[in-house]
Design a protein around this nucleic acid. Structure first.
Lengths: 156, 156
DNA sequence: ATGGGACCTCCAGTAACTGGAGGTTCAAGG
DNA sequence: CCTTGAACCTCCAGTTACTGGAGGTCCCAT
């Protein structure tokens, strides 16, 4: 049985974040000691690792919740799991494409930055200029979702 | 001179977001009509497009602010712009690797999900299991981040 | 001159955490 | 057995980057 701090160390998740996940029902309420401290078993460790892995890949908690709900009810038809998984796959592929083009652009920016002054720095120039940016694609139409959440800073 | 709604349409930025950028000092206070409505010129359009482009590429506003401050003072060295871009590139590559492995796992899940019940889907198992996941690298205790930006949040 | 759409400010809410205050519990050392 | 201090508890406020609504004002085409 792990205390919350050990679970934290084990999974690279900050302690308040674990409690937060419990608050919003992503993690079930764990056992408690006589003195009211949380104690976690292996299942919880796996579940938290799963959540963190998904979060790290940029999935919103709502999607993660859908996956978890599904796996909490193992008698459900596989069809819905399949649907969700396929949806996730499409999302992943979309993000992959988008990141690949971003990578290209960043590389080009860095290559062009020859170390002079800002006046002739192409990093800023190329960020102001949209002409050759593939990423423009997903600014032009008006899709439902534009809040792609920004990359999380690494946990220290 | 554009009204805020036209600037919004022009740049694909929601109206409240434009006002928010003004509040936090990313956009300067624009001219106003006699009746107190905002009017924007071409420079502002460019600046907003720059901001949106950066956001779209995943830069946090603090980095964008740094970039803008930098470009407002073009005699400075471009080294810090380069640093920011390199930092973004590392992050992007990390996410690319992670997503590629998730894609593989999702494909495997979908292949295995041949119409039974969720119990046989191994959703949790495959995502909780890091054995073959490249993303593990940065879950292990590797404190290497020293990027701290000052929490200056005052407008004007 | 008027009507309705676009604009104004202010405030509250969202996701997904993060951190601090003030108090309690656990377990190792004396 | 008792002390001590690190780790735990709850509650609450703050963070980033927006988003939306209420209630009121302005602009301009008819």
């Amino acid at each position: 049985m792990l205390a919350i701090g050990q679970l934290s160390a084990e999974t690279g998740t900050k302690v308040p974040t674990i409690r937060y996940y419990e608050d919003i029902g992503l993690l079930p309420q764990p056992e408690r000691t006589a003195g009211n401290q949380r104690r976690y078993g292996k299942r919880q460790v796996d579940r938290l690792r799963f959540i963190r892995h998904c979060r790290d890949l940029g999935f919103p908690l709502s999607d993660i919740r859908a996956l978890l709900d599904l796996s909490d009810d193992p008698d459900r038809s596989c069809a819905s799991a399949d649907t969700i998984a396929r949806h996730q796959l499409r999302e992943v592929e979309r993000r992959l494409a988008s990141l690949a083009s971003l990578r290209q652009e960043l590389c080009r920016m860095i290559d062009q930055c020859a170390g002079g002054t800002v006046a002739d720095c192409h990093v800023i120039e190329s960020l102001a200029d949209h002409a050759h940016c593939i990423a423009d694609r997903h600014m032009t139409p008006a899709p439902m979702e534009q809040h792609v959440d920004p990359p999380r800073r690494d946990p220290a």
